[in-house]
């Protein structure tokens, strides 16, 4: 996975911008640099989650993308994203077992349309997710396969933020397995409903994120630059 990430970064740095697909060109044109001096409540965040056919970066594909936007501790449901990605590949039995998505539900949008919608939705916001690395890597793969490239947005992992809350000086020393979304739900009293649907998990992650940010702010994390540390 790390190798894939490195490859992505290298790929991005050496690519020719002129050959990008339209969705990515638009994304680059509109992308604005983040003002890290801003207060957290002034910043717009996109909390996302994806569901995939499996956990293999090479073989598996994205089935759905769910995302919500958070500004000033508010989430407007009209401003959310819920996309089913039509998959060319035959889905594996495995994914059905985990996500319960059946063939009839897998109509959805073409990967192309999904990318247009997704990049348009994300814009220049900070992206938030739980164990987000994998989701980002899958999105990058989808983007590159369709003439796009990687996301330039700043990325925050709620699992990391929770560990940072518990052990500010060395968050990485804490076991990742103790910071699953389910465990954080229990801790922050969020009912884990509609788990393993992209939008359901995005909602849950968003609630967890708002509660985490509130607790971090009590420890002096108030600006974007503090949060991104």
């Amino acid at each position: 996975m790390i190798w894939q990430k490195l490859k992505n970064i290298l790929h991005f740095d050496t690519s020719d911008k002129n050959v990008y697909a339209d969705f990515y060109k638009t994304y680059l044109q509109q992308f604005q640099k983040l003002d890290t001096k801003k207060q957290i409540h002034q910043q717009s965040f996109v909390v996302l989650d994806t569901e995939t056919t499996g956990l293999d970066l090479v073989k598996d594909n994205i089935l759905s993308i769910g995302a919500v936007r958070i500004i000033n501790n508010s989430m407007d449901i009209t401003d959310s994203l819920s996309i089913i990605v039509k998959n060319e590949q035959t889905q594996t039995q495995n994914a059905v077992a985990i996500h319960g998505l059946v063939q009839t539900e897998l109509k959805g949008q073409s990967p192309q349309d999904a990318l247009v919608a997704f990049f348009d939705f994300v814009g220049s916001d900070i992206i938030v997710g739980h164990h987000i690395d994998f989701d980002i890597a899958m999105l990058h793969k989808l983007s590159k396969n369709r003439g796009g490239d990687v996301l330039k947005n700043k990325i925050l992992d709620t699992s990391y933020l929770a560990r940072r809350l518990d052990h500010a000086s060395d968050p990485h020393s804490l076991d990742r397995k103790e910071y699953t979304l389910d465990k954080l739900c229990t801790r922050f009293n969020v009912v884990p409903k509609a788990r393993h649907t992209a939008d359901g998990d995005a909602y849950i992650t968003a609630i967890v994120f708002m509660k985490l940010v509130n607790l971090l702010s009590q420890k002096g994390v108030n600006k974007i630059c503090d949060l991104l540390k």
């Binding site: 501790n73 508010s74 989430m75 407007d76 449901i77 009209t78 909602y203 968003a206 609630i207 708002m210 509660k211 509130n214």
Partner: peptide, 11 residues
């Protein structure tokens, strides 16, 4: 109504 709700977290 649900599809237009604003979810607000109030510490």
């Amino acid at each position: 109504i649900s599809s237009h709700v604003l979810v607000k977290f109030l510490p």
